[in-house]
Design a protein around this nucleic acid. Structure first.
Length: 657
DNA sequence: ATTGCCTGCCC
DNA sequence: ATTCTGC
DNA sequence: GCAGAATGGGCAGGCAAT
């Protein structure tokens, strides 16, 4: 299939919202592909080149793509439409015009590249690099038509485009950024506007079409049967080996082998019995060395709610570290580690080789949380300290200064046998045998846990963990099987309502200093995030005129769509052409629009962190909006001193353990 | 050599 | 990570 | 409730600019 044909179908999908309709359309698409194309297309549809556990990245994203588009624009004499034309088009499209306040006039500074400024501005207005690419390509077409000298289009097929994308990703070393741009430019030249649009979205890693892995699996079933009957089987297979391309090929292979070209494109239902399916997916069994999709936590507010859902539970302390899935093949003499997103990180944690060598088994797969500790005191370290271990260089030295402790809490396979379908109680027993207290070391320990059915006991245990500086508890249904993702009620963390309890009970009142234009579905709000600040009074001077507002965080979540639009409208009343004099922010955080101080927002966060970037010197971990404080003036916002006090309270907590 | 921008990936 | 939203 | 798509702070690494 040509990439153009693929892109045309994606274009159709873009105007489809209903999931079932998306599934059906995807199924039709899948049925038109040959086996090679299926594999590759599955990756591309997820904005990837390979399954996640095979490391290959574009190293080409927003900024470099934008630079490439400037090159393309220059080559094609592209000029963005004027503001007036944009307004007209938006009105015609029935868009909510009132949301749009005109953007500040483009400042063309002497010595800057005008076209680059204009393309960048157009990107901020469109909120999508793919759409911008199509627009530039469109200009190319009309330009070419005008001259009635249309270039021959090569109309590459999917595999050709894929190969070119691979080549772009594989370039590295000195001069590679230029080379990537040139290769991408050459690819864009080969494609029509729609094809170019989706190639760019693939490079950006997001298709923004309202479907992803789960819907793709629905579509696989739909491609074969016209319904979702095999979805569950497919999802289980995917959990065992997270490679959607190979899964798709294996699943559809029976059909593909017997299919004639004429049948491609028809939604023919082939009668494949369960036996045939299981044969096709036979190779999909948990395998030592190939990562399993990890189980994740749901969230509930209280211990009562949890016990109501799961009558008998195990509660474990929740460490703030790095999730590691550890594969031990002790017969072959190796240990491998994968992150939550299945990146292989074996080389970053050399102590694991020794750490797991003494386990009494032939092989196993373990689920664990890795936390750094102080080798002098044994004290558990913060996430910020732990994450410095995720590195490629000087690993040995860092392993000495920040050794890790693995808290093992689950066992997915043992001695060539998958345990994912065994109940947790059983898996815990196996784990107890494999890793008894006598086998524990500085590097490897079993996560201790509490078995209970009593909400009060659970609540107390949670409070105790918070008290020693941990993140609370993870609560697991005692009889539950191991399943990837968050579905069902198997693993739950306690997330108390904002501002009640937990690690950081206090909320913070911030001044809105500016805003950033949004991308994707936030584009029409005219804002995607806000820049927040807190107060700092200059100690050297004592008069009230020395108060400054220093940046402390950006805010991009916790607002409803309605609140985004409301706040943007309020912000428009407070626009400032330049940065107000009392503001202090690093240039890297320059917002798209400045606001005079006035708007105050109440913000919740999980933690105060010391910040290398924000002007306040501290920042907020996981900031989100609690409430618009129309009742407060900006002079009443939180101060840096108060934040630093909270920050010290946290570290004192850590020191207790 | 050093710095700073950009990217990818942890949470 | 947190959060919101259409289905 | 699922699935998807917006968005956060901050770390290391790669490359380009100085």
């Amino acid at each position: 299939m040509t990439f153009h044909q693929l892109a045309e179908q994606l274009e159709q999908l873009e105007s489809t919202a209903a999931r079932l309709a998306i599934t059906a359309q995807l199924a039709i698409l899948l049925n038109q592909l040959n086996p090679d194309e299926i594999i590759v297309t599955c990756y591309l549809l997820q904005g990837k080149l390979l399954p996640s556990y095979q490391n290959l990245e574009f190293q080409l994203a927003q900024k470099l793509v934008l630079r490439t588009l400037v090159l393309l624009a220059r080559r094609q004499n592209y000029l963005p439409p004027t503001q007036a034309a944009v307004k007209l088009a938006t009105q015609k499209a029935g868009g909510a015009m009132s949301l749009f306040a005109p953007e500040p006039e483009l400042e063309i500074r002497a010595g800057t590249d005008q076209l680059a400024e204009m393309v960048g501005q157009r990107f901020r207005n469109l909120g999508d690099l793919g759409v911008l690419t199509a627009e530039i390509k469109q200009a190319q077409q009309s330009h070419a038509q005008k001259k009635s000298a249309q270039k021959p289009t090569t109309n590459p097929d999917i595999l050709s485009v894929y190969q070119q994308l691979l080549a772009i990703a594989r370039v590295g070393g000195t001069g590679s950024q230029d080379q990537k741009q040139q290769l991408l430019l050459a690819l864009l030249e080969e494609l029509d506007p729609t094809g170019a649009k989706f190639v760019i979205r693939m490079v950006m890693g997001k298709l923004r079409l309202g479907f992803s892995t789960m819907t793709l699996m629905d579509a696989l079933s739909w491609a074969k049967h016209g319904d979702k009957r095999d979805r569950e089987i497919l999802e289980l297979a995917y959990q065992k080996k997270a490679d959607i391309g190979k899964l798709a090929a294996a699943y559809l292979a029976a059909d593909l082998g017997t299919k004639t070209n004429a049948e491609f494109g028809t939604n023919v239902s082939v009668n494949a019995g369960t036996a045939e399916i299981s044969a096709a997916l036979e190779s999909y069994e948990v395998e030592i060395g190939v990562p399993v999709m990890p189980a994740l936590c749901q969230r509930l507010n209280t211990a009562e709610e949890i016990i109501a859902k799961m009558p008998r539970v195990y509660a474990e302390p929740k460490y703030d570290g790095l999730r590691l899935q550890i594969h031990c093949n002790l017969e072959a003499g190796w240990v491998k580690a994968f992150t939550r997103n299945l990146d292989e990180v074996t080389a970053m944690f050399p102590e694991l080789q020794q750490g797991f060598a003494h386990l009494k088994c032939r092989n196993c797969i373990l689920d664990a949380e890795a936390v750094g500790y102080d080798p002098e005191t044994g004290q558990i370290l913060s996430f910020q300290a732990t994450i410095t271990r995720k590195r490629k260089h000087e690993v040995a030295a860092k392993a000495a200064s920040v050794p890790i402790r693995c808290f093992v809490f689950d066992l997915m396979a043992l001695d060539d046998r998958s345990l994912v379908d065994e109940p947790l109680s059983q898996r815990k027993q196996w784990l107890q045998k494999l890793l008894p207290p006598s086998a524990e070391t500085e590097t490897v320990r079993q996560t201790r846990y509490l078995e209970t059915s009593d909400p009060e006991t659970l609540h107390q245990f949670h409070e105790t963990q918070l008290g020693v500086g941990l993140e609370g508890v993870v609560v697991k249904q005692a009889d539950s099987i191991y399943r990837s993702g968050r579905k069902g009620w198997r693993w739950v963390k306690i997330k108390e309502p904002e501002g009640t309890s937990g690690k950081l009970a206090d909320t913070i009142d911030c001044v809105v200093m500016g805003y950033y234009l949004g991308k994707g579905k936030r584009t029409i709000f005219g804002v995607g995030a806000f820049l927040l600040g807190v107060l700092e009074s200059d100690a050297a001077k004592t008069d009230s005129g020395s108060i400054r507002i220093v940046s402390v965080a950006k805010l991009g979540t916790g607002l409803t769509d309605e609140e985004f639009q409301l706040l943007r409208r309020q912000a428009d009343q407070m626009r400032s052409a330049t940065k107000p004099a009392i503001y202090e922010i690093p240039t890297s955080l320059q917002p798209d629009g400045w606001l005079e101080p006035g708007l105050v927002l109440e913000i919740a966060a999980d933690e105060i962190t010391t910040s290398p970037t924000h002007a306040a010197g501290v920042s907020l971990r996981f900031p989100r909006l609690v409430k618009v404080r129309a009742d407060k003036g900006w002079e009443q916002a939180t101060t840096v001193a108060e934040l630093k006090e909270l920050c010290q309270l946290q570290s004192r907590l850590m020191a207790k353990d």
